[in-house]
Amino acid sequence: MFHYRLCGLSFSAVVPLPGATALDDAPGTPDVLLQRRAVPHRLESPLGHGPGWEMDGNRLLLTLPDSGRFMASDGRTLDIDPAADIDDIMPFVLGTGIGALLYQRGGMVLHGATVEVDGGGITLCGFGGTGKSTLAAALCRSGCRLVGDDLAALSLGAPGEGPLVQPDGQHLKLYDTTIARLGMTAQSGPAVRRGLSKHYVTAPAAVSAPVPLKAVYVLHDSPRGKATSFDRLPPLVAAQALLNQSYRRRLALTTARLDSRSAALRDAVLRRVPLFRLSRPRDLDRLDEVAGAVLAHVRGLEERALS
């Protein structure tokens, strides 16, 4: 068995988990058991469904044509039933599968990359292909530490404290062009998925413990020639943005309909954490400029809070 920590949970797995933080010792009772076993083609009484997936009260079944199926159950087990090469299904297991487990545990997950700045986490949200990982990599190269690349797993802190972001491994997932532009070729590892020019890249530094969430930035492209700008979202817009930026939004909505435990966490984020629209040029040649603007903005928030 292989043993890992991922998104605040301990895993015992029958296969390696690329990008996850390996544990030196086996956990006494792991939070999640990942095993290879037969998975049913359908659920008997699904209560929700989406493209390739269906869900009942405590299980999510995902079917991937030509790759296989997996099922996340009770927030505690992940059963994998690959059709051929197990590597073809693992990116989905480590994405949608982990997200489903966190939702089944009453958690909240944003689709974002998170870095630690001066002791707190900032999450960069956006739909697929908006450059979350690229900007996170530039921030890491500027001295930040990686918290997580694709899933921002949130949890409630101690009474009186704000929400926390759980660490999600030590690797970024970057395209070859970005790796070359950032000078991170030496840190580049195996491909994320066969036939995809995206690789696991070891971050310069990463956290191993949860960090308080200090801000969420929703990425948007700015018009050509415009400077990076930050606009704080008013409460109702921020609430909608949190919903829109949930990891696998439709899956999150279905889970929330069946299980209300995440409501308190969502309310805590809206009360304690500012959300901003971050408009910046999508230009690799201006990436360091954008990273510098983000750092200045985050530190300005801290200065205004202390004044």
Score class of each variant (00 low, 15 high):
11 F>R: 14
176 D>N: 12
24 D>W: 12
293 A>R: 09
273 V>Y: 01
266 R>V: 14
2 F>I: 10
293 A>L: 05
26 A>I: 12
216 V>C: 06
197 S>W: 07
29 T>I: 12
14 V>Q: 15
62 L>T: 11
188 S>N: 07
138 A>L: 10
76 R>T: 13
151 L>A: 15
246 S>H: 05
267 D>K: 08
290 V>K: 04
66 D>F: 07
161 E>V: 05
121 G>Q: 00
273 V>E: 05
174 L>G: 02
84 A>Q: 05
225 G>N: 06
104 Q>W: 03
273 V>W: 04
225 G>E: 09
241 A>T: 06
295 L>S: 10
290 V>S: 08
107 G>D: 03
213 L>M: 06
185 T>L: 10
100 A>G: 13
26 A>S: 13
36 R>N: 10
211 V>S: 06
98 I>K: 15
24 D>R: 15
219 L>N: 02
283 D>Q: 13
169 G>T: 04
172 L>N: 03
156 L>P: 05
184 M>Q: 07
62 L>H: 09
217 Y>T: 09
102 L>C: 09
114 T>W: 00
228 T>W: 08
15 V>F: 07
38 A>Q: 06
93 V>A: 14
61 L>W: 05
300 G>C: 07
35 Q>S: 13
5 R>F: 09
207 V>G: 03
275 L>D: 00
103 Y>K: 03
8 G>F: 13
85 D>Q: 05
118 D>E: 14
168 D>G: 12
163 P>R: 08
101 L>V: 14
139 L>G: 01
9 L>E: 04
32 V>D: 00
121 G>S: 04
